[in-house]
Design a protein around this nucleic acid. Sequence first.
DNA 1: CTGAAAGCGCTTACAG
DNA 2: CTGAAAGCGCTTACAG
Lengths: 349, 349
Amino acid sequence: MPIRGKATSLDIAHLAGVSQPTVSRALRGSPMVSEETRRRVLAIAEQLNYKVDKNASNLRTQHTGTLALLFFEDPTPDESAINPFFLSMLGSITRACAQRGFDLLISFQQLSNDWQADYEDSKKADGLILLGYGDYLEARSRLERLVQQGTHFVRWGAAQPGQPGVSIGCDNFQGGHDITAHLLAQGCRRIAFLGHASNHYPEFEERYRGYAQALEAAGLAPDAQLQIDAVTSEQSGQEAADALLARGVAFDAIFGASDLIAIGAMKALHERGVRVPEDCLVVGFDDIPLASFVNPGLSTVQQDTKQAGALLVERLLQLIAGEAVDNLTIPVKLALRGSSRRVTASPEA
Amino acid sequence: MPIRGKATSLDIAHLAGVSQPTVSRALRGSPMVSEETRRRVLAIAEQLNYKVDKNASNLRTQHTGTLALLFFEDPTPDESAINPFFLSMLGSITRACAQRGFDLLISFQQLSNDWQADYEDSKKADGLILLGYGDYLEARSRLERLVQQGTHFVRWGAAQPGQPGVSIGCDNFQGGHDITAHLLAQGCRRIAFLGHASNHYPEFEERYRGYAQALEAAGLAPDAQLQIDAVTSEQSGQEAADALLARGVAFDAIFGASDLIAIGAMKALHERGVRVPEDCLVVGFDDIPLASFVNPGLSTVQQDTKQAGALLVERLLQLIAGEAVDNLTIPVKLALRGSSRRVTASPEA
DNA sequence: CTGAAAGCGCTTACAG
DNA sequence: CTGAAAGCGCTTACAG
């Protein structure tokens, strides 16, 4: 038994009086090994605290048992500010990986100039999970390159026809529709939309389309004066709400394309003395943990991150196994709180 | 040039008309290769989109270029609820790793029964970063085993004499002292401490000791009636505050041993009609993002997670390089907000 | 059920 | 400056 350095399967073989391949078989639970031999090998392995060398076995088998998670967010000013929604996803993805016996390698793409970081090419991972709302049109060519290289990957985001690779996303359209219908049911007629509504941000665009359809179903036309661009950050939401106020147009509700936008907007309204929900209802999208903490609580569209993480991992594994995998859209539901509760009586904290 | 499968260094060697070791040297920037050869090799490698097989090179060199981050929290009821403080750490650790060219493997220990998951033994990582506030006495034997096995690791937490391995932590004592002194300066005399104050939770214990010393410096004695056990969660903080109220003892401030505890306590106070800060000041510890969002904003002790993450990685790398590394304590500072602002005039939102 | 042999794709002395 | 050789620690046909 070697004092220095970790034990190898050969050490165990010597001690057990068998060949090294037999040790390998015993350890991997092969049926081609007698019970007695297996027991002996296992006991010695345990005693030596032996662990299979992953590099050696990966090299031999040509797969890694590892998935890589790549965040490709727009670079944020404060680098520690990861979008809280993706943080929730991180948790569920980590768990899904662990349950299936895979390790997770994570990376933030801001730092890396070679985009997909070649995790799969360099045999560090069997496949990639892509997370992030950046400019889709910019990302698109990179996705195409991944497809072309035969890289296995799944992406969280709007599933659209003709797009490269496999996407899994929530039903942004339905979510946008339902939350808008909710505002309409509260009596709102002038609902502002804060967020990009272009094909650069397909998730937001879908939410906008749902918003527009709900309006039209109620006999209202979307008013361009009530839409202001914004990306997912509090700061951006605050600026957008300020810009909306500066336009001087009337509005009775704000739909933030993400919770961060909505929360930033609430802050702006508060600073200008516009009361939520008395003077203006506010809703968001995502249901990040913060949504239930702001005052009043933010009504929003809830994405099931637990299910999403599990599905991303499951589908990626299918892809790696060579199965065909389709895009997938996950249903959403509303989480209604104080920010969209029409008050008729006297306000209370 | 092979159509199927990734290119290897041998493929490149054939195409460049050199031996395979020469390709390896050229790619790794060895000075023992002529400029002309290097250029030729590099060009072909690029064209073939060649990437070094990490398993092969790791196996050969016997290190991985990967660090593993292990969360060992007490299992939480809602599994997606990772302590937000550690989430901030995750961000800064990821960045520090990337800057130094290391990959990060992450794992949540709740799922794994073999504790340190043997990342280093199985050659998946060169070293471990341990993150989590669990029961220290339970963790201790495991830390000892890691030391005994010669595993390289650093741990975030209270640095105490005689403890196994290297710990890096913030100055919990000073933080507890300073925030308590702040409350005293606001005129508080009956300050409750919500959180465990035993050696099972050394970080909390240190914060408690700082609290006690500040009280004593002001001529006050810590009152056991004003201390209630709690772990880091909103729920636990809420229960602790309820228990405090149930005791019927007078208090004019609450020091939550973590922000989550403090925020839970604020919720409990609010439900009982106790106003913050009019009737009772509240402070926490950590400065999680949520702290500035609750209403009123939570005064707290700020830990510099950016610096902490960088230091954890730096020290771990030193350890791996065989250097001696000491425990380290990072200074803290106060982040004062509305929850500890004594109001004399009329209250306002 | 077990062993001898080959090979995964690199890196690194060792010669020249 | 370059090549032939060895070997990192496994897994998997191939024989028996």
